[in-house]
Design a protein around this nucleic acid. Structure first.
Length: 278
DNA sequence: AGTACCACCTGACGGC
DNA sequence: TGCCGTCAGGTGGTAC
């Protein structure tokens, strides 16, 4: 059992978490001018040197932001784009007093107003970079459309040409961007689809149900505070996320939650509820 | 094209 | 008590 407040309760950033990080950045650091850049660990820069990112960011201000899938893209006043991917353990912290600097601060922007924005990333699987523009970045990364921008017609089209497992398809960032292991499980749970199902095995009604679940789950997670450790306590009772444990009671039936490796990931599902696509 | 597996990375946890 | 293997999970690379 996970203990409350341990690092394990921190969410792995997928679309809903990153959306709330974007809103956090918009509410805090936007329009502030960067006075200094402090690189705590250049590994998160992948290739880009500390002096290069420092040179490009110093004197700039953060003008606007957008999110595409799990990426946060911040446009600067010179038109360039600061790109942030949170990996598994990344998050943002905006603060004034340096004793609030998070432990795993890998990159910090110090603003003219005396505040700081830190990219906190314990496992350093996250990365920060620079791109010509947000659209250039999305194209270069070969990302599919953002999961919340895909309507039912487009969703049917994406799946029509896809073969193989539905869980792998949902998590494929080049097909649609933003869904990872945890939310793919949640979405399939609400749609009543067996996570081991093949895409071809889903009929039209089931694809419509899947699309509906996808939107509902992602939006609910955003509204209930994804990105905060409180999310798990704020989700509706019918959500699987607080029951991601082998043998836990299914929140919808008398069955038990099962764990299995599906699409290469540890997956949780209820075999009694999730029967579609079998 | 889709799948399988490894590596990256850190810290928690179970086994002995 | 303490060492050690294993696991988590997004992404990227490679092999099939």
């Amino acid at each position: 059992m996970r203990s409350l407040g341990s690092w394990e309760d921190l969410p792995v950033p997928e679309l809903p978490d990153v959306e709330n990080y974007k809103r956090y950045l918009d509410a805090t650091a936007l329009h502030e001018r960067v006075a200094d850049v402090v690189v705590g660990n250049a590994k998160v820069l992948r290739g880009l040197s500390a002096s290069e990112i420092s040179k490009r960011l110093t004197g700039r201000s953060l003008e606007s932001s957008c999110r595409h899938g799990k990426h946060l893209l911040v446009t600067l006043d010179d038109g360039a784009c600061l790109t942030i991917h949170f990996g598994m353990t990344g998050r943002l912290a905006y603060f004034k007093a340096m004793d609030e600097d998070p432990k795993y601060d890998r990159l910090r922007l110090d603003f003219d107003n005396g505040y700081h924005l830190a990219f906190d990333c314990r496992r350093m699987i996250g990365r920060v970079g620079l791109a010509e523009s947000d659209t250039a970045f999305v194209a270069a990364e070969e990302l599919g459309p953002d999961a919340l921008d895909v309507d039912l017609t487009a969703f049917r089209k994406l799946l029509a040409d896809r073969r193989g497992g539905i869980k792998a398809a949902l998590m494929d960032q080049s097909l649609l961007a933003g869904i990872g292991n945890v939310y793919s499980d949640e979405i399939l749970f609400h749609a009543g689809i067996d996570p081991r199902a093949a895409v071809e095995a889903l009929d039209d009604d089931t694809v419509a149900a899947l699309h509906h679940s996808l939107r509902t789950v992602l939006k609910t997670a955003i509204d209930r505070g994804a990105g905060s450790e409180e999310l798990i306590h704020r989700l509706p009772d019918t959500y699987l996320l607080p029951h991601r444990e082998q043998g836990a009671g299914c929140p919808r039936c008398d069955g038990k939650v099962h764990r299995a490796k599906i699409a290469g990931r540890t997956s949780y599902f209820c075999p009694a509820c999730q029967t579609k696509g079998r």
